[in-house]
Measured scan of single mutants.
Amino acid sequence: TTYKLIANGKTLKGETTTEAVDAETAERVFKEYAKKNGVDGEWTYDDATKTFTVTE
């Protein structure tokens, strides 16, 4: 399944996707990606669109 991340960070803005077996796995991947890019904010997830959003 393809999951999408929308990053609304102070230093990183944009979108990326990952293939994962479930939302929990995708969330781990995206949180690691955000951490590597210095983004720390509020996370939301929309199951209907398989989209995570992080906003600083």
Rank of each mutant, 00 (worst) to 15 (best):
T1I: 13
T2P: 05
T2D: 05
T2S: 07
T2C: 13
Y3H: 03
Y3T: 02
Y3E: 02
Y3A: 02
Y3W: 05
L5H: 01
I6R: 06
I6A: 05
I6M: 06
A7G: 05
A7W: 15
N8W: 14
N8A: 09
G9Q: 05
G9M: 12
G9Y: 06
K10L: 14
K10D: 08
L12I: 10
K13W: 13
G14E: 10
G14C: 15
G14W: 15
G14Q: 13
E15M: 13
E15A: 09
E15I: 15
T16K: 08
T16L: 15
T17I: 10
T17F: 14
T18C: 15
T18P: 01
E19G: 05
A20Q: 08
A20M: 03
V21M: 13
V21F: 13
V21L: 12
D22W: 03
A23E: 07
A23M: 13
A23L: 10
A23Q: 12
E24T: 11
A26F: 01
R28V: 08
R28E: 07
R28S: 08
V29H: 13
F30A: 00
F30S: 00
K31W: 05
K31G: 03
K31L: 06
E32S: 07
E32K: 06
E32R: 06
E32C: 09
Y33I: 09
Y33C: 07
Y33L: 09
Y33G: 02
Y33A: 03
A34D: 01
A34I: 07
A34Y: 04
K35C: 11
K35S: 10
K36Q: 13
K36S: 12
G38S: 06
G38L: 06
G38K: 07
V39R: 02
V39N: 03
V39M: 12
V39P: 02
D40V: 14
D40R: 11
G41C: 02
G41Q: 02
G41F: 03
E42T: 14
E42R: 11
E42Y: 13
E42G: 05
W43P: 00
W43H: 00
T44K: 08
T44N: 08
Y45L: 01
Y45F: 07
D46F: 04
D46H: 06
D46E: 06
D46N: 10
D47F: 07
D47E: 14
A48L: 12
K50T: 03
T51P: 00
F52Y: 05
F52G: 00
F52H: 01
F52A: 00
T53Y: 14
V54G: 00
V54R: 01
T55N: 09
E56N: 06
E56G: 06
E56I: 09
